[in-house]
Design a binder for these strands. Structure first.
Lengths: 332, 332
DNA sequence: ATTATTCCCGCAAACGTTTGTGATATGCTT
DNA sequence: AAGCATATCACAAACGTTTGCGGGAATAAT
């Protein structure tokens, strides 16, 4: 068959009006049961599907949500997307995934695209270099609901859903101190990022409360190779004495592992290791690395329900936080 | 401002007709230069953007490509998507990413969605359990171009772009034999899958040609833990004598590494390791694992150009293959 | 028998755009 | 002066759907 089914075709075929067909298909009370039956039957036979363009044009908004992330090749964002996708599908929405390549210009371009397509709502994880929020403000003028997640702006007027970074830092420190009484090497990421600052604050607060601050060494690594360097340096200075290592991210964890390997030190006997992770990489190593899990999946679920609340209109702007959970591993 | 700009608003404001505005904005020769200038100026001021719904409704197709993959959390598909996304954006298209959860029903549902939205084209990697191709045939009746990639159907009537698996298998075997004269343990994935069969054929063909078939041990592992078991077993039987290990995938590679770790054997002195990979995981370990790279990114580029060819109409149905490249690592 | 109520259904406008066709005016050709 | 080409624009139909409104017929109430 070359021609796609439409309301008009069904109405012609049944000698009734287009509007009756339309109403019949959505069980409007104004149409007789018998008519409904006939319409639905024919519709099924022609496998009619409403033309999304026409529907959206009429309704002035589409049934697609947009997710804008710095980069898609990231397990955390993956699981976030997966969660949102599940819920969205269940509610009859579809997902449009856009990546900003960590470039604010591309990010803005993506927002244009969203406006352009009148998406039903947008989930955004900001670029690390996003400076001005004006393009986002603009979305509100066209009534597109916005939920920031993970990388959220400081601005108070936005809806945000994020990891409870401070608590996660605390949790990691508590675990480390509970397992081993030992000097601790903690390697964090870029010290300028607020995520780093919050996690570090949580971590050090616990150490301070436990009175082990003097046994704590802190350093920062932007990339895996810096983490390698810090690890090797630390143990060279301390003569390969046993220590507990804390890593703030997957990337740093990989660096630490390479460093320990270079030093011929083995987990968990020569050193202990605990990281914060989204849950994929730590299980690939042997022994598996213990980690505090920041679940992208859970964050996705939370974000979606938040989006629904916002769309229903009866809620105020606020920030939600998501707690982390401990996943044991042989490295601790 | 609460109201979005439209052609009508511009035309009212300038006291000219809607059609003239429309034509002016797309540099139609039928409108005077001066008029064009005024229209464009006002359009820019109101930052007018054409309503995508209306355009698509009129044009009967959208500027959205769909990518349907078994699951999105997979580095190979990621890089594929990334490549397609780049090209699509450059051509003014946007991407809709759909995952089938490796479920044929969800896959079919996704196809419905694509038809429903009149996407400009679809890139599909099949579910491992997809049995009947009828839903895909249906797409042709509505003129939606289709490109299968990676997991492609046997059906000859479809356009396909895939990894040159046989050649990749050959390449791996050649590399392994060139580096070390030693017994070889080769661990492949599910023996039922055609990808496994092609890679294994390439691998064994080379061994046969080199006359080292008698030194080759082949086994199959569906998951990482099976690979662990096979590795440990092999070396226990052979008394931890040096051997070269070949792994067909990232997952198997992880298993092999865990196995070697249990055996207290170290790369590259106690054993050598070469894997086939998409390029992310092998570099995380220490030493970095040598691998033959099957590039999802390159496959994406190839698929997109193929899609463009198909859409231009002047081409025949065919299958394209993509070659792999060797990435050295300390494990070999 | 008249009025009110309920049940079905069709008319028509609207969403914003694209595009074929026709209209007007101007300049140019003969 | 008549004919013709060219340049510039407006009209209107179409894409497929949703929905307010109104109307006719059947039933119930008075």
């Amino acid at each position: 068959m070359k021609t796609t089914a439409t309301l008009k075709k069904i109405s012609d075929h049944l000698n009734i009006s287009i509007s009756t067909v339309s109403r019949a298909l959505k069980d409007h009370p104004d149409v007789a049961p018998e008519t409904k039956r006939r319409v639905k039957e024919l519709a099924a036979m022609l496998d009619y599907e409403p033309n999304a363009f026409a529907v959206n044009l009429r309704k002035k908004h589409s049934n697609v949500f947009a997710v804008v992330v710095p980069e898609i090749s990231n397990y955390f964002y993956h699981s976030f997307i997966q969660a949102v996708e599940e819920d969205a599908r269940r509610m009859g929405y579809t997902l449009m995934i856009l990546q900003s390549m960590n470039d604010p210009d591309v990010e803005e371009q993506n927002l244009r695209l969203c406006r352009h397509n009148h998406v039903a709502g947008i989930f955004v994880a900001l670029t690390s270099r996003t400076a001005h929020m004006q393009p986002f403000k603009k979305l509100e003028t066209v009534d597109i609901p916005l939920v920031f997640f993970d990388k959220v702006p400081a601005d108070e007027t936005f809806n945000k859903v994020s990891i409870a970074d401070y608590d996660t830092g605390r949790q990691a420190a508590e675990l480390l101190l509970k397992h081993r009484k030992a000097p601790v090497l903690a390697i964090f990421g870029n010290a300028q990022l607020s995520i780093t600052q919050r996690r570090e604050k949580g971590f050090t607060d616990v150490c301070r409360e436990a009175g082990t601050l003097n046994k704590l060494t802190i350093c920062y690594a932007e990339h895996a190779d810096e983490a390698v360097r810090h690890t090797v340096q630390y143990f060279q200075i301390h003569g390969k004495a046993f220590a507990s290592v804390f890593s703030m991210s997957d990337e740093i964890m990989c660096g630490v592992l390479k460093g320990l390997n270079q030093l011929q030190m083995k987990l968990p006997d020569d050193a202990a290791l605990l990281t914060i992770s989204n849950g994929f990489l730590p299980t690939l190593f042997s022994p598996e690395i213990a980690f505090v899990k920041t679940s992208g999946y859970d964050l996705g679920k939370l974000s979606f329900s938040r989006m629904m609340e916002i769309m229903s209109g009866k809620t105020f702007v606020r920030e939600n936080f998501l707690a982390s959970t401990y996943i044991p591993g042989g490295s601790l």
